[in-house]
Design a protein around this nucleic acid. Structure first.
Length: 192
DNA sequence: GCTGCGATTATC
DNA sequence: ATAATCGCAGCG
């Protein structure tokens, strides 16, 4: 059947473990423009933010804070870190770097490539999780070995913009770091 | 066992 | 500019 064949062809271009075993800033830049495949439908990653871990005051794992909530960030790169925020939204991160180096990349905007709907609400980290149905059941999910969701390579051409990260005013000097990256002009980049 | 807040969003 | 809304980190 056609759907299965499509999934198989996407899988040939799936990013392997080594792709994720780099620091969060490098991974964030490398993830931009790549394609997230979720239940057989493709979404281009158009906006991301890097959270650099133990020395980043904006990161949930600043000073090696290790709790039930942040545990997934300590997994090997390529796993998924999902957290619940403001009492109503989930946010999805791709874990970066090797095991026990708790860094991650927040997915803030994705552009549907196979969608029929006029303008799906996937511009924003909370909105895209709601649209795809990503919740705590994906906590610790492995993008390298599991098949419901994964990321594939693509040679899409775009212009990258660097900016400060959003809504981290508590992060003191780290709030000014240019660790947010997005595709210039893409309409699925969250508001700013 | 309490308390306060947050890697957001929609609406005022 | 602010309300909505609640899991959980921090506290002692």
């Amino acid at each position: 059947m056609g759907k299965v064949i499509n999934i198989m062809s996407y899988n040939e271009k799936r990013l392997n473990r080594d792709f994720y075993l780099v620091d969060a800033v490098t991974l964030a830049k490398n993830l931009l423009g790549k394609i997230l495949v979720f239940k057989g439908e493709r979404y281009r990653i158009v906006e991301v933010e890097a959270y650099m871990g133990v020395n980043d005051k904006a990161a949930h794992t600043y000073k090696n804070r290790r709790t039930k909530r942040t545990e997934a960030m300590y997994l090997e790169g390529g796993r998924v870190y999902v957290y619940f925020i403001y009492g109503m939204y989930y946010n999805m991160n791709v874990v970066a770097n090797k095991k026990d180096t708790p860094q991650a990349v927040l997915i803030r905007g994705i552009e549907p490539l196979d969608y029929t709907e006029d303008k799906p609400s996937t511009n924003g980290p909370g909105k895209l999780c709601r649209k795809l149905g990503i919740d705590k059941s994906y906590y610790g999910y492995d993008l390298v070995t599991e098949d419901e969701m994964y990321i594939i390579d693509d040679d899409y051409e775009y212009e990258m913009v660097e900016s400060k990260r959003i809504n981290i005013d508590y992060a003191e000097e780290d709030k000014d770091r240019l660790w947010r990256y997005y595709i210039k002009g893409n309409k699925y980049v969250s508001k700013k």
